Computed example of a mutant assay.
Amino acid sequence: MRFSITYQVSEMPTHYRMKIYSLIKEAVKRGAPDYYLKIFEEQRKEIKPLCFGTYLKEFKIEDKKIHLKEITITISSTMEFAIHAFNGFRELHSYEIEGVELKQTKIQLLKEADIVSGEVYFTTISPILIENRMGKPLSPAHPEYENELNYYANLQLKQMAGRELYKPIRFTPIKMKKTVIKESNQLFRQTHNEESLFYTAYRGDFKLQGHPEDLKILYQFGLGKRTAYFGLLEYRREGA
């Protein structure tokens, strides 16, 4: 299930993604407290059944702040998670991030693509993060990129479908661009000298080939590493 929420807001920190993740968690908590405890407390180390991306309208970055008109959050998740989050967001008419108020202006269900073939063209809503086992980011041109992508895809399938990939995923970049994501949280600041985490990810257009059922799962729950924040895909078309 896929839906979006739009908030009017004038200013946000550059490390806003984890703040938005906290907003999503708050919505789930309001919609279903017991489910929140299960997903975010009891199963805190497991891959979460959601992926989200953001769109910032008319934004401008100045120092450590982003000035903008509004933010739209797109969430793709299981039906159960989406129902609880959607109900919670209907109560979250306003929310505060670092002293700045977000005012909700729209919440809507989105149409999902029904993937039926083994070749699908996508574009990113949130950039794809692929790192090797030592935590080094890889570009789509790297010879190990596809192997590592399959590693993360297998983890996703095991968590969300209880199985491995039916067949390996083939990744063909079409027009991809590097983007460096700046993030921070309280635990990181307490244990490191630096204020921020930096992730090197890639956004743009690409083609995936694989089993249709595998591609459906990756479309719904994200592609790559840290798929709560990264790897949300938008369907373009199928076939050659």
Rank of each mutant, 00 (worst) to 15 (best):
R163L: 09
R163E: 07
E164I: 08
P168Y: 11
I169K: 01
R170L: 12
F171H: 02
F171P: 00
P173A: 06
I174C: 08
K175Y: 09
M176K: 02
M176N: 02
K177Q: 11
K178D: 04
T179K: 15
V180M: 14
I181K: 07
K182I: 15
E183I: 01
E183H: 05
N185V: 12
Q186W: 10
Q186T: 15
L187S: 10
F188A: 04
F188Y: 15
F188K: 02
F188T: 00
F188H: 11
R189E: 04
Q190L: 11
T191D: 01
H192W: 06
H192S: 15
N193M: 11
E194S: 14
E194I: 03
E195R: 12
S196W: 12
F198L: 13
Y199R: 03
Y199F: 15
Y199S: 03
T200I: 10
A201T: 06
A201P: 02
R203E: 12
R203K: 15
G204A: 10
D205C: 07
K207G: 00
L208Q: 01
L208E: 00
Q209N: 11
Q209P: 02
H211G: 08
E213F: 09
D214Y: 06
L215C: 08
L215T: 03
Y219M: 04
F221K: 01
G222N: 08
L223E: 07
G224W: 03
G224H: 06
G224Y: 05
G224M: 11
K225A: 10
K225F: 10
R226W: 14
R226F: 13
T227R: 13
Y229E: 15
F230Y: 13
G231S: 12
L233Y: 06
R236N: 02
R236A: 01
E238H: 02
E238L: 00
